[in-house]
């Protein structure tokens, strides 16, 4: 029964998220973009496939990130502002269990969102190519790892929301995700630098920032690169552990917070 309580909280969180207008606005916009990719691809010269695939994966990633941040930052702070967490916490539910439940509910929302957008992208690719050739292991792995990217984004949003306002939490979460992407691009150049301090900084940032590039297989979808199970498993382990660490930190912060 005790184990089920976070799952009950998760179920409620999922239902709440599915009632959010913002969620639907973003999902509809992303779906329109994906469905419109077939028309956009006609503007190009040759290789229309890559435009459809790139719009599909990028729209899922960008809109998924926005959904994860904007739903994630409100997940704890709104409960405290509306005082709706008090009746729940008054029951035998630990604060850590409450937070884990909220996070799992958010994660379920993101999984649904990614599945919907992956289906729309697959539909567009199938319409364009007229066969199952384009939707293979790389496609499934890319969208699977994208879910883990969003899990990290959501965990960051939840972590910040345990001690900060929703606006500031959104800014901080998006800044760290952006820094994670940026660092992935400049990391190689910094490592080539002769400055010893740079290398030390790279090591610190490697530990602190999420390496979003490790969870990114968009290129494999665009170019049909082979994807090995071992590689996907390793990347998934990294993403899952990073997100879990953030959730654990969030639970720790929330447990120590004075919410009277």
């Amino acid at each position: 029964m005790t184990m089920n309580r976070p799952l009950v909280v998760a179920g409620n969180t999922l239902r709440e998220a599915l009632r959010e207008r913002l969620f639907y606005n973003l999902v509809v916009f992303a779906l329109l973009l994906i469905l419109g990719s077939l028309t956009i691809s006609r503007l190009t010269l040759g290789e229309q496939y890559r435009i459809i695939a790139n719009i599909g994966t990028s729209a899922t990633q960008v809109f998924g990130t926005l959904i994860a941040v904007f739903l994630g930052v409100g997940i704890v702070s709104r409960e405290i502002d509306r005082r709706t967490c008090y009746p729940v916490l008054a029951r035998p539910v630990s604060r850590a269990g409450f937070l884990a439940g909220k996070y799992l509910g958010l994660l379920a929302t993101l999984v649904l969102n990614v599945a919907l957008m992956a289906a729309a992208t697959a539909l567009m690719l199938l319409v364009y190519r007229g066969g199952s050739h384009s939707v293979g292991v790389a496609f499934i792995a890319a969208f699977g790892l994208m879910t883990l990217q969003l899990a990290i984004v959501a965990a960051l949003a939840v972590l910040f929301s345990t001690f900060s306002s929703p606006t500031l939490s959104s800014i901080c979460a998006l800044a760290i995700v952006g820094a994670g992407w940026l660092f992935g691009e400049v990391r190689v150049f910094w490592l080539q630098a002769h400055d010893v301090g740079m290398k030390w900084m790279v090591q610190v940032l490697d530990f602190v920032l999420p390496n979003m590039g490790l969870l990114d297989l968009k290129e494999a979808v665009t170019y049909g690169d082979p994807v090995t199970l071992a590689s996907v498993a390793g990347r998934s382990l990294y993403g899952a552990c990073y997100a879990a660490t953030l959730v654990a930190l969030a639970a720790l912060t929330f447990s120590r917070r004075d919410i009277r």
Partner: peptide, 21 residues
Amino acid sequence: LRAASFGQRLVVADLYWLKLV
């Protein structure tokens, strides 16, 4: 532009490709 594309370099490349066409 690649560094500033925040992981969306493929889709940004497509936009510049359309500009080239």
